[in-house]
Design a protein around this nucleic acid. Structure first.
Lengths: 225, 225
DNA sequence: TCCCTTGTTTTTAATAATACAATAAAAAGA
DNA sequence: TCTTTTTATTGTATTATTAAAAACAAGGGA
């Protein structure tokens, strides 16, 4: 049995999500070689012998986006024998939520952001992995205000609501949202306002460092039966 | 970089939980060889090249318990470089919930059930894996009545409540539990009763096949702030 | 027959979630 | 300066959910 398993390879792939241009977007790289040449893929790499899986995911994230100290969570391990046409590659998928203002990426024809609602042709089972990361993000959002990981450090409640609506893919009631948002542990009201053009300024808020997953967020109304 | 990864090995380990003797118990095997000789471990094995991870977990479960058609879910992938002292072994952990009446195991000094509240010395990081499987089971239980996977086909509401109390590790109010349990989708009231000694017989219930994870179960009261 | 144990049902109060619309603040243009 | 435009901000009535609690029922054994 041991011999039969010798040729497994293990990689870590990271779904990197951010909010840009009023949409949830995912960072993709274009494959330059076969298999799946010219298709898009989520960033990934082999796990080094000296690092654990979290460290591998952080390394890949750092290599690609130059950010750290962000929300990163193991998603699922995909191991279908046919997911890679030429080899037996098992991938441990992670997903990350990053602030667009923290990003320091020079995009190119081979590296760029794509709206999750309009994905290009993807390599391997990466479509499935991205969809699963969105499902998990929705689940997390029902338990804790993890969406603030997508917002800039200072944000308005309208921006926060927009993030929720994009992730949950439904409209929320403005008054109820604000009421519940304001009761969220860790939300801090600032004495600053947006200064934009031709409209009423909005108060800015920020989050203190809170334990994620610590509290149920009440932003999303339950489905009607 | 490829060379550095060649010697990874990948296994699947399965935390098999059941309810026996008024306790949640886990199936463990005693290790006969080093490393961790004479310590206990959760059942596992290498992933074969021809099977995916779910199939590997099902195979291991079937080999050990001779049951199939049970609740099985991928738990987490553990890949610390030091989790195995002699090799770089990454394990994809699963957990399973089985009915004690379905079990067909001949226990021995090397294979047996252990209460999760009183575990023997464990090999590798298996203590962490078992604890994580209990945490996940609790999370699942808050979303769907997955506990019926631990109950026999026909059960009383008191037995069902007992399962919830054991998993959640807290007492529940009998009257409220029954009210909410009876409103659960898929619960079927039978015209049969327990015939036991010296007490009032209890009505038996069963579950029709339901989509798990389809509905929030209301059995557990929220934590007080 | 009485006692003991466990199973079963109902009512009420408290809390949380939901639906819903008018007013306030700033800037631009008339 | 007045009007228009745009977005921010706020409260209440209703409904649904959850929590807490008490009395009665059924069987076995003394």
């Amino acid at each position: 049995m041991f011999n039969e398993t010798k040729t497994h390879e293990i990689t870590v792939d990271v779904v990197i999500l951010t909010m840009k241009n009023n949409a949830i977007q995912v960072l993709l790289v274009k494959r330059l070689n076969e298999p799946f040449k010219d298709k898009w893929a989520i960033p990934g790499g082999y796990v080094r012998l000296s690092e654990n899986l979290d460290q591998a995911a952080l390394r890949i994230l750092k290599e690609r986006t130059n950010v750290d100290n962000i929300y990163l969570e193991q998603l699922y391990t995909f191991g279908d024998p046919l997911r890679h046409p030429n080899a037996r590659v098992i991938t441990c998928a992670y997903f990350a939520l990053v602030r667009s203002e923290d990003l320091n990426i020079t995009t190119s024809p081979e590296l760029g952001w794509h709206k999750v609602s309009d994905l290009p042709p993807l390599a391997f089972d990466h479509k499935e992995i991205i969809e699963y990361s969105l499902k998990r993000t929705r689940e997390r959002l029902e338990l804790c205000p993890v969406a603030y990981q997508l917002l800039n450090e200072k944000f308005t409640l309208t921006e926060m609501q927009k993030a929720y609506e994009l992730i949950m893919n439904k409209k929320l009631d403005k008054r109820n949202f604000r009421k519940k948002a304001l009761s969220t542990e860790g939300l801090i009201e600032l004495d600053e306002y947006t200064k934009s053009s031709s409209k009423r300024p909005a108060r800015l808020y920020t989050f203190e460092n809170i334990k994620l997953n610590s509290k149920r967020a009440h932003f999303i109304k339950k489905e009607k039966k």
